[in-house]
Design a protein around this nucleic acid. Sequence first.
DNA 1: GAATGGCATGGTAACGTCAACATGGCCCGA
DNA 2: TCGGGCCATGTTGACGTTACCATGCCATTC
Lengths: 331, 331
Amino acid sequence: MGDARRVSMADVAEHAGVSGQTVSRVVNASPRVDPATRARVEAAMTELGYRPHRAARALRTGRTQTIGLVVSTLANVGNSRMLQAVADAAAARGYALTVVTLGPDGIGPGFEQLREQGVDGVVVLNEASALARDAPAPLDLELVVVDTPGADGAAYSIVQSDHAGGAHQATAHLLSLGHSGVHLLAGPAASFAADERERGWREALVDAGREVPAVVRGDWTAASGHSAAAALAADPTVTAVFAANDQMALGAIRALAEAGRRVPEDVSVVGFDDIADAADYRPPLTTVRQDFDVLGVRAVAALVDGIEGGRRRTETILTTLVTRASTARRG
Amino acid sequence: MGDARRVSMADVAEHAGVSGQTVSRVVNASPRVDPATRARVEAAMTELGYRPHRAARALRTGRTQTIGLVVSTLANVGNSRMLQAVADAAAARGYALTVVTLGPDGIGPGFEQLREQGVDGVVVLNEASALARDAPAPLDLELVVVDTPGADGAAYSIVQSDHAGGAHQATAHLLSLGHSGVHLLAGPAASFAADERERGWREALVDAGREVPAVVRGDWTAASGHSAAAALAADPTVTAVFAANDQMALGAIRALAEAGRRVPEDVSVVGFDDIADAADYRPPLTTVRQDFDVLGVRAVAALVDGIEGGRRRTETILTTLVTRASTARRG
DNA sequence: GAATGGCATGGTAACGTCAACATGGCCCGA
DNA sequence: TCGGGCCATGTTGACGTTACCATGCCATTC
């Protein structure tokens, strides 16, 4: 194997009886090629099995047609979904996707790795805090950040779900069922998505003239939801819990069950994300659906626009309340 | 922005007062460089902020220092975990990772995309069937396939979990608790992992001299587990269910609950994978743990060895039974 | 019929790197 | 003292592609 050198433009050119430059024009869909010549070149490409050499093109043009994705963890189901959505959207636009996960040293090494690899742009998932803390906003890299606070005149585009709106909807739904208050099982303090969901919850309570109870906090995992919800489960005045994601809701439901409280008869629970499993929790979970596919498509679109010289922008994707059996009318 | 041309070897060479070739030797850790010269070059690199240009190196050497990962879906938690493990292992060895998800046309286009991008090798996850069906074993690409049947003299390395062993353990555990039979909620027919788990279950039953009941089948999702388990839940003679993954176990537990059967008092349930959420199912799920991190490290190691001219190999990673509250002694 | 312009195509150089070969200094043994 | 060999370093060219400019042909216009 391997002694068969790869087919280059020069080979195609010779085979088709044209110059390499004309082959290049055909490959890049330039309009200034005679249709007959184009057909001849295309036939030669097919016959020889020609494929363009991305590295050579990258060397010449300075673009790698590759985008990077920085993510802290994929244990989080939402992140996995986003990754898949971004991968598909990137492929659809002819970009390859390189994935970097964050080590303990923050986002710096990740950027470094991607910069060295020469990506044309980077999508950053859910790393608002790490980004703000570590990175002096790498201006040399086109950037789209998902779920991050919108600094005015930021050097990057922002794509986000309407976390606050979804949380408001979830809380209002619980109140409309006759619950006098709604307790929040919040996400980690450093997370923008967690902050926004907390804000929506708080505003819904204030809008309805209710008290805003103290917040308990987890780290998105079911295990953290379980331990954080123990306090809520022990308090008989708690009849409605809004968990900042589905996985923490799962842990919370277990904690409630262990305290002898039934869902939804004694306590109603709402989650956030609508991950695939949520419909098979016991009981099936009422939750706020994020449209990860749209999020991924928009993130890639914003990034590619930026690479091609477009303006920075901020986009917010709406969320939907999905009502299932974990919420019931009070009393 | 952008008019600052990137720093090249020639810049470093000039700054350090040596030739470009010497810089190249320093970068590639060649032993034939005087320590003093090496120090001078390294200082110049730091001062100028030099980073090697991967595309140029790739053009010259024919290696991109990039590996590809082909995966059908990331909805499956196991696949996400593997992806993260592979990404980390690749980064640790200085390789970038490019992710491709499979469209409806099978694995062909994915290989095509990766080949064009010029990856040095490819890790294929869980796509045994698609690989066997579509791909004429792309011999020009170094390949590691995870969880695939081991063809003798295969042109690729194989890394797999001990699915059969884990399933055997799970089944034997249920029998040891006094259950007279164990029913299988199997994975999709085309999957190697599903086949192996079924084989282990079957062999454990045969070893114990028990009957082998008919298999019900899902597609790894909780929803499929829920509908497939409906038949088992309705059958009062069923007291032990082995689900081929945790997510299907979740659906099965819901189906059992809906049929009025308690877990574990009436029916014991075991899953497979030990995903993070499994400990917070209600009841916490007894399951077979796969070591995804080791799997990822071994897959990358096998791939890199292959790229560097090593032999093909097959590795099997052992699994562990994790006992939780979803299994109880019969009667 | 000559000048003009548009259009298809070709020639050349350069992107940044590394492999192969070349060079020149020094040490060591005969 | 001289030749051979080793070692550090330099020179040259090529990987495959595309940008820029040049060329030559044909149709159009006065």
